[in-house]
Design a protein around this nucleic acid. Structure first.
Lengths: 167, 167
DNA sequence: GACAGGTCGTTAGCCATGCTAACGAAATGG
DNA sequence: CCATTTCGTTAGCATGGCTAACGACCTGTC
């Protein structure tokens, strides 16, 4: 369930591996906990990104271009799981900031191809540490085992979400 | 770094337990990955909550009242890590929906005390499964070990964030 | 070649949620 | 009593979600 940090500290019981109702309750509890965690992480992220002068959604889109390479606006919208009008707006801001450049497509004149500018790339590199400094600082207090747990959990989430077509 | 799911699959090296630069890079990488995960989870959550007719931020605040008990508006804002004006607006919507009730405080007339209504409580219970059904469904494909990893990771995050005063 | 249907990105409008600035009411402390 | 602090609200702005509508372009069929 969606609730405050620390309120979900009731550990779910260990069910068998099969998809039993108890297992369903367990996965639901996990999903609820991470939904709450996500909301608070995004709020934290928003505050950290203020120092960079770029918002989380914009940086997320820029990151796709920087690390995933150039793509069309529709592909970027799909990759970021938002509608094209939303991405149009985000890209317009990135362009205005000189972080993304836009070009047509020779084979299909409807398409808008987007690419990170050198400045956009530099900002991703430079801002990388600043953006997550606060969270990273708190993660430093964790043991290596705990860090490994988080890394493993991150991989699980990325695998789940990675099922989506990248385009 | 903030990027698309599946792009952070490069495992960080295993550093020693001490706070070395390599460990700093590792925690930073973990922080970056979870920041990206959080953005996408919230987007997914937003779509799921549409069925309930209540937005994620509102449900998060309601959840605090339902499970954490009544509190002042300022306390709720603090618990949710937003400013009082923002919480004023969120609470106004919850009140309009009959999910939260407001009262004065006998010992300090400046204070506004908030409490979940029976309807708010019922909605939290009823909507619980619906809200995270999609993510929970995907988590069902995980092994028990993986679920345990996620549960452990959730507890770590909740501990980090739980350091904040609840008020 | 003509045309219907589909695709792409943009514009407009609406809503929600963050923030800051400003303010009035109430409480606190000297 | 009065200056300062605290609390919640209002107003304004920016951002980011969405849907609806539209024009430009592409594709497939006749």
């Amino acid at each position: 369930m969606l609730t405050k940090w620390g309120r979900m500290s009731t550990p779910a019981p260990r069910p068998p591996r099969s998809g039993t109702p108890a297992n369903d309750a367990r996965t639901e509890a996990v999903a609820n906990r991470f939904n709450s965690i996500a909301i608070h992480l995004v709020r934290r992220l928003r505050r950290a990104d203020e120092a960079l002068g770029v918002t989380p959604s914009r940086l997320s889109a820029l990151s796709v271009l920087v690390f995933g390479g150039p793509r069309t606006l529709g592909e970027l919208a799909s990759a970021e799981a938002v509608t094209p009008p939303t991405m149009t707006r985000i890209v317009a801001a990135l362009e205005a900031a000189g972080l993304v450049s836009r070009a047509g497509d020779a084979s299909d004149r409807r398409l808008v191809r987007l690419e990170a500018t050198p400045e956009g790339r530099r900002l991703m590199q430079r801002g990388r540490a600043q953006r997550v400094e606060r969270l990273a600082r708190e993660l430093r207090a964790l043991s290596a085992d705990e860090l490994e747990t988080l890394e493993h959990a991150a991989s699980i989430f990325e695998r789940i979400e990675g099922d989506r077509p990248i385009g």
